Simulated scan of single mutants.
Amino acid sequence: MHVPAWLCGCWTWSTSAGDRVDEQAQAQASWNLFMELETLEAATDHFSEANLLGRGGFGPVYKGVLQNGDEIAVKKLSLESRQGIQQFTTEVRLLLRVQHRNLVTLLGCYAASGQKMLVYPYFPNQSLDHFLFDKQKSTLLDWTKRFEIILGIVKGLLYLHEESPVKIIHRDIKASNILLDEKLHPKISDFGMARLFLDDDTHVETFRISGTYGYMAPEYAMNGYLSAKTDVFSFGILVLEIISGRKNMDRNLDEDKTDLLNYTWKLYKEGRALEIVDPALSSFIYTDQVQLCIQLGLLCCQSIVSDRPDMSTIHLILSSDSFSLPIPGKPAIHGRVGRWTSSTTTISNNTGTTFGITTTTRASTTMHTEEESRNSISISFTNEGR
């Protein structure tokens, strides 16, 4: 089997000799990853409905079993979809390049005959949203486990932002893109919308907006301003969901409770932030840790981009026995994003170590959220249409 020419042409990282050698290694790795259609058809019983795990914006996901007994998940995409091709090539080249215990591993792929597929390990626990938003399953996630999940997500994002061979902005961090292994360890998945940054880049401006409303930072959703703080905002929303056990938008609740971020902000200002805690955690005793995570979630969602902590600071906060957090400012959701300005915010811990956070914000506009779609594949909202 040969690697399709359109896929070979996607290995463009930089013009350095070292990177050209790396491209050759990736091309060889892609050759080894390609699987036969017959193998995937046999594994999934010809993609039967009985093996359907979920369906999203780019196609269905099927459970399969290989001849050696290994269980797999096959994401099936369409070559006729322009956006689908971009997602496929992005995900293949990124997952060939990055490896971390809190990122999903690519096992194989297929691209021929008008079809393309990505093959991953099968996780019987599926994704985080299947636990958080199910009243029975949510009881299986005590606070210790939820905190471990939060910390695992932080480690995965820290790797993508600061430790991987290339700086990567995921752009679609949400509960359905966090897979859980047999021990409920989190694995960040779905890199089809991820964006690579050059070493010196801090942000880009783009007119193609991809992600899930409700998790998207407003400076990105409305103005196309993309930075690592875009993922930080999404992470903040996810933290509040993990604590509360509810979706970020729930129109079945009273009007003042519909928007989780604004509701949490209201309670925080009134000194009642613990009221958002999932009733399934009513007997937990980690009050201080929960309060810290609520405050951290709000810090990640501030309207002033430069005031949001980066992932290295977040990791330090959660790994420290004692950390004094600043008071969060007004959240960005349903708020206004300021003009392009540069500013620096410092955060100091109890040992006197100071961390500076510097970035830029954008001209004022207003963002309204939409309820996110619950499935195992990312949904892209783009101003160029699907």
Rank of each mutant, 00 (worst) to 15 (best):
H2I: 14
I209C: 12
Q126C: 14
P331N: 07
N177Q: 01
F58N: 03
P331A: 04
D172I: 05
E49I: 14
T366F: 13
I237G: 06
T212K: 09
S342N: 12
R362I: 05
T369L: 13
I276W: 04
E370W: 03
L53I: 05
I237W: 01
G18S: 04
Y215H: 04
G59I: 01
T313N: 06
F381D: 14
N32F: 07
D250G: 14
E182F: 13
N68G: 09
M216I: 11
G64C: 01
F123E: 03
P124A: 11
G64A: 04
P186K: 03
L37F: 10
S322I: 06
P60L: 04
L260H: 00
Y225A: 05
L77V: 04
I243M: 00
R208F: 15
E370S: 12
L253D: 12
T89P: 08
T206C: 06
L226T: 00
I379V: 08
A43Y: 11
C109N: 09
F34V: 13
F147Y: 11
V305M: 01
H130Q: 08
V104E: 04
I379K: 11
Q295A: 07
D250H: 12
S312E: 12
P165S: 05
G54D: 01
W13I: 08
A73R: 13
F207C: 09
L261T: 14
T264F: 05
S312W: 03
E370P: 03
R82W: 00
I314S: 09
L226E: 01
V204R: 03
F233P: 05
T230F: 02
S319K: 11
L160V: 11
K229N: 10
I377W: 00
W6Q: 11
S282R: 10
K76A: 05
T206I: 01
S342D: 09
E163G: 08
L274S: 12
D70Q: 08
S312K: 15
T44V: 13
S322C: 10
P218A: 02
H170E: 00
L316M: 06
F284N: 13
Q289F: 14
I237Q: 02
Y286W: 04
P4Q: 06
G57F: 02
H130R: 08
S319E: 01
D254Y: 15
S244G: 11
K145M: 07
C10Y: 12
N383Y: 01
G224H: 01
I317Q: 02
P326L: 05
E148H: 13
F197V: 00
G64F: 00
E372C: 13
T212F: 09
E205V: 05
I169R: 07
F191T: 13
L253M: 12
T258N: 09
F355L: 07
T15S: 11
F233G: 08
D256E: 13
T354E: 10
S378R: 08
I178S: 13
I85M: 00
Q86K: 06
Q99W: 14
I327C: 11
W31Y: 08
E255K: 15
S48L: 10
I317T: 04
